[in-house]
């Protein structure tokens, strides 16, 4: 098998007569953390939805672990890919444990019930995300940061080889942002899960990622090592905006600051 978990080849997607993705090609290497950046409305979420079979593909192909997505049922796909959508004020009227147990759905038939194995897997998913302490609490009573961790836990319970996360840290405070990053890094290292994160946090993505892909108006405009995104002019072109590059006073790492309005 190839060293890629996902291969997107020449992918196009039309929604309501408008081309959202055009000839998009990129690969996700096994066990690597890739960040997907780009302006609002560039097609980042649409790309994830095409990879999840939520939206029909108008052209090109998506291959998941060597097989085209058309060959997967939604249930079989859920055993390979865990999808964490944007939280955006959803209500989940279940306890954290009940919700995490739903992550085992891809392995259930209408006649089977949750086994001890399922409970063990869910328990370790809660432990890994540090959410076991609120297992009995209602999801809706949690803070935004805690909710994000629980969403990751329930996806982890699916036992996925790939995780797609849509802006997991956009609405989080710095502490919870760091927690999410640490947990994703642990999932990558310990479980060898391939991770794709949609993010607007460019500095974190340079620190966290093995590779960065940039998308603009439905086309791929950059793909490369994290350091390469800091080469002059690249980010400016992606976001149509000037950026300032400077060094972190303590770590000496390159950091990127959007130019502020004078």
């Amino acid at each position: 098998m190839s060293g890629f978990d996902i291969r997107v080849d020449n992918l196009s997607c039309n929604l309501g007569g408008k081309e959202i993705l055009s000839s998009f090609t990129f690969d996700l290497p096994v066990g690597k953390y890739t960040s997907l950046i780009g302006p609002n409305g560039a097609g980042k979420t649409t790309l994830l939805k095409c990879m999840m079979k939520f939206l029909p593909i108008s052209g090109g192909s998506v291959e998941i672990r060597g097989r085209r997505i058309e060959e997967y049922s939604q249930k079989k796909l859920a055993r390979e890919i865990g999808y964490v959508p944007q939280d955006a004020g959803r209500s989940i009227p279940f306890s954290v444990e009940e919700f995490a147990l739903m992550g085992r759905y891809p392995y259930l038939s209408p006649f089977s019930s949750i086994t001890e194995d399922d409970r063990r897997i869910v328990k370790s998913a809660l432990e890994m995300t540090g959410t076991e302490e609120f297992a009995d609490r209602g999801y809706d009573t949690l803070s935004g940061g805690e909710k994000q961790l629980v969403l990751i836990a329930s996806v982890l319970a699916q036992g996925p080889k790939i995780m797609l996360l849509d802006e997991p840290s956009t609405f989080l405070d710095p502490k919870h942002t760091e927690m999410v990053h640490r947990i994703l890094d642990r999932i990558k290292r310990e479980l060898n899960v391939t991770i794709l994160v949609v993010t607007h946090d460019i500095n974190s993505s340079i620190m966290m990622s093995d590779g960065i892909v940039a998308i603009k108006k439905g086309r791929m405009v950059f793909s490369g090592e994290p350091q390469e995104i800091t080469l002059p002019g690249i980010l400016d072109k992606v976001f149509d905006k000037k950026f300032t590059y400077t060094e972190h006073p303590v770590t000496g790492r390159m950091i990127i600051v959007p130019d502020v309005m004078q």
Binding site: Q74, A78, I81, P85, I92, Y105, S154, Q158
Partner: peptide
Amino acid sequence: MTGEDLAAGKGV
């Protein structure tokens, strides 16, 4: 009940 995107993502 948790939302259509989450349900579909878990295989529904």
